[in-house]
Nucleic acid binder design. Sequence first.
DNA 1: TGATTTTGTATCGCCTCGAAACATAAGGCT
DNA 2: AGCCTTATGTTTCGAGGCGATACAAAATCA
Lengths: 394, 394
Amino acid sequence: MPSGARQATLRTTNLGLALRTVCASPTPTSRSDIAAATGMTRATAARLVDELVAGGLLDEVAREALPRRGRPATPLLPGACFAALGLQVDAGLVAARVLDLRGRTVAERVELGDFRASDPAGTFARLRAVAAEVLAALAPGVRLVGAGLALPGLVDEDAGVLLRAPNLGWSDLPTAELLAGCVPPEVSVVLGNEADLAARTVAAEAPGRAGPHRDFLYLSGQIGIGGAVVLDGRVVTGSSGWAGEVGHVCVRPDGPPCTCGSTGCLELYAGRHALLHAAGLAPDVPSPELADRVRAGDPAATGALGTGAWALGVALAGVVNVVGIPTVVLGGHLAELAALLRPALERHLADRVLSARWQAPRIVGAQGPPAAGASGAALRALDVVLADPARFLG
Amino acid sequence: MPSGARQATLRTTNLGLALRTVCASPTPTSRSDIAAATGMTRATAARLVDELVAGGLLDEVAREALPRRGRPATPLLPGACFAALGLQVDAGLVAARVLDLRGRTVAERVELGDFRASDPAGTFARLRAVAAEVLAALAPGVRLVGAGLALPGLVDEDAGVLLRAPNLGWSDLPTAELLAGCVPPEVSVVLGNEADLAARTVAAEAPGRAGPHRDFLYLSGQIGIGGAVVLDGRVVTGSSGWAGEVGHVCVRPDGPPCTCGSTGCLELYAGRHALLHAAGLAPDVPSPELADRVRAGDPAATGALGTGAWALGVALAGVVNVVGIPTVVLGGHLAELAALLRPALERHLADRVLSARWQAPRIVGAQGPPAAGASGAALRALDVVLADPARFLG
DNA sequence: TGATTTTGTATCGCCTCGAAACATAAGGCT
DNA sequence: AGCCTTATGTTTCGAGGCGATACAAAATCA
């Protein structure tokens, strides 16, 4: 139920706007810049900034020697003392990463391993150790405003339950107890789907600063294929948060049965195991190896990639037709294959997407460090600061 | 670029909130009710209401004899003198309908015909005639705040160009000149995709009043199959407005070629022509006839419907998996077949949707009068009033 | 008739912003 | 060096809009 706006609403709204204006800019921003960008007067912008600086949400930084006429501006950056912790558990790694409000990685630790069909207690113990290391490395003044955990599966965010993660072999797993000890007691950990969170690292290159694409489909290829639809810079989670299961879009209804109960799912043709199997490689061979073989002209590898591109084309064309998205970002193991998949995949899409005549869908490989889900989880936690900075001022 | 909030922003925001509160309620609402619903004080609510009443955006209506203790409230309803015109051109009809801010149909005219591969000039002449009749029937005080035209195809809204409408046989058609004379010169007509607009009649039963579903996929079966994704009560139009082409989702990659350039599109199995052809009926037989045959046990008709349900199952499962929508609303000719399609279709979805174990997708038939696109176009035009009523006060 | 209850109205003060003048700190020019 | 110019930041004042509070109005109930 929406509530009436009052004087205080004005304040909080404009505080948020001022903060987001600073965050949105890749370079330091002055009070005067904020006034110009928002249409507020310099007086108002200054009032708001003063309050944000006093609360640590903005930092006044030393000015660069940039000789210009007029009184030099006081450059502002998002407060370095606000940070959030992102955690990730995946079939191949556990990770912890702390991002600050400027989007910098303050501390991180990624530990590779094989957590397929693992024991949750043991895996979470590893996660706890990794988190503890990262938190110990934090500077004393840093304030942890939240934490998130990226998991490769269906998640019930409100209940804090991992419903089903085929790659880990876990289902209906409450995480509250397992997460105890990962973070200070006053910080709560919010669960999230790995693809949904990883997509945030593409949608935003720092808290409040838009990334290269506003509307895209993100594919997170780990073992299966997860996905996330991003519209207008925001991840579409669906009414229950169970969106983005691109891996189980049907590309061949009379195809082989999938463990999900359906038949001919995308994962069976373009999943990591499927690609490696079709290429005649062992299931634990890393993706660059597959890419090398394709580049070397290995026929089995080339065929596997061709089949994968074909299946991706069928599935992604459906998504693009329905959601009207111009860009597909390939993450996870697919990122390393993006360059090789692109030509065939874009051709398939051009054939199957109705609006391709006016706007051909583009395929892009995801950039950035591994364990993007951890970064995304931290970004999401930091977003609550941007949404209502007034809460963090008292 | 977002702009700073000032005192006047407060006012316009709260004016909109007060108006929307009245619109959202199915029963008349008092100043006091608004205060309670929004958290504003009665003083503030009354101030805002007085202004809205003075501008005609709210009407004080006679109170029902509802004996209660205390001073009787003054019931308010959305202003009856604000209205918008919705137009629709489809393969089988042209229509004009005027809705007022209360969601009532003030005047309407639906003219059936066969406009497949028709001459745009002639068809638009029919539309002009229909619109003129409807506008002539309006009461003198009614103020037309906008107009919209629903078209069965890809539309460039900003340019006012119909890019491609296979059912009409039109493409790259600028509409500005053709629409001249349909509405008074000071009113502009905004184009929209028929499915997108029809979906609004499900999302909202009146301007500002939510309908039975907030998140759903709407299927608009005319000759082809259009669709619209509705999330959180809002139609997802995609960054270019080219979303919702469910009819060209691929359900059998090795199937027959489609006119769109792809193969095995949903339309080829569940489109109107496809169903009738498979049932051994002529292409102009109305859908209820097909339904009757199925109920009578006609094997060809039953088989056609079974194939249609199967194809819909494959395509819709993909959509549900990716967008996480719990409900599919069947409109157009599919509405009449909804009851017959539901059992098989829900079974297919239960098999192919990953989250069906926690939330089984539901199939619902669309209710309401024909030419839903016209209603949706009017609703969209009226939404601009709700978004910023202050614009209509001066 | 009067107490009670609910709705609507009037008055006042507070909060926040905009406008405009002022203060500050630099570069540029003579 | 000294003054002008320019851009930034600050101070002061006034206006708009809302909440709080008291009050008026119109009904039911006893």
